[in-house]
Computed example of a mutant assay.
Amino acid sequence: MTTIRGGDIPREKVRLAKHYPLFIGDTIGVESYYQKLHWHDVLEINLIKSGTGYYIINGRQFEFQQGDILLINSNDLHCAYETKDLVMLVISFDPSWLISSLRLDPEILSPYREMGVNFTNLLDRQHPRIHKLRSLLLELQEEHTNGLRSHTTIVYSLLLRFLATINREFRIEAAAGAANQISERQLDKMRYVIIEMERNFAHNWTLAELAALVYLSPSRFSDIFKRAVGMPPLLYLIHIRLESAIGMLENNQMKITDIALECGFRTLSNFNRLFKKHIGASPKESRRLQG
């Protein structure tokens, strides 16, 4: 029997400079890549500057609005969706950058280490100290953007103040739902299945075959997958196939019938129906818009 471990599951490798291992920048809307479930090897902070949308993180949905702050852990299975005029400040950083500070304050990364137990991904927007966190993030971005002398030290110190403030002020004893939290091992299993689905999306997967990949009964697998991903496994497979089809439609040399078959749809009529239902336009209309 194959043992599935966290180290066996590939994650998105975010390349950051060794001497200054963080990314800071605004994103407008949500690119299609980030609408697909993913996980990465860095810690992430999001400040919603304007607009609305929602995250799905480990199967839980978090609706966000202007002023909200979210923390994304390195193992969090997540995707984001825009509902209106979204502008988001994204800060990604390598936790090893804070090793020296951990000697002084071993709890500095507790907001991530204790996520789902004593902290939540979406910080309390009504908390009296939330405005302080926003100010720290905006100051951090300004220092990074201006790049003046010693800006790396100031950015580092602002990041520490941000994390320390959360650790001190935003701790929630036994956060709601902690008892029903999906275990890390269960998340690893779902990641493994998602990777196999994405590698072989044209395969005619059945629920039983997917469940067998991680040695679970179909009903047990379906329940865990839905809680982790936010939708049933076969529906997620349709989304993977449709996303691949959208990319193929950019190639005007491929016939739509061939695209349908390449993406695992058995009939053109089924492809057209599902494409229209989930994308909001027919494949022909989508190709015309992309052209």
Rank of each mutant, 00 (worst) to 15 (best):
M1S: 13
T3E: 11
D8N: 06
I9D: 04
Y20K: 10
I24R: 05
D26E: 12
G29N: 08
E31C: 04
H38S: 14
D41E: 13
V42K: 02
L43K: 00
G51D: 08
T52Y: 02
Y55H: 12
N58Y: 02
E63M: 04
F64W: 01
N73G: 13
N73D: 15
C79A: 14
Y81M: 11
D85F: 07
I91R: 00
S92F: 07
I99K: 12
L109Y: 01
S110P: 04
F119P: 08
T120F: 01
T120D: 11
N121K: 11
H127N: 08
H127Q: 06
R129P: 08
R134P: 02
L136R: 01
E139A: 12
E142H: 07
H144Y: 14
N146P: 02
Y156Q: 03
I166R: 00
N167E: 13
F170N: 02
A174R: 05
A175W: 00
A179Y: 03
N180Q: 10
R185S: 14
R185E: 13
V193Q: 01
I194V: 12
I194T: 02
A202N: 09
A208Y: 11
P218Q: 07
S222M: 08
S222K: 12
I224A: 03
F225E: 09
M231P: 07
L234G: 08
L234K: 05
L242M: 09
A245G: 08
G247M: 06
L249P: 05
E250M: 09
E250P: 02
M254Q: 10
D258R: 10
D258I: 05
L268H: 14
E285K: 07
S286Q: 08
S286R: 01
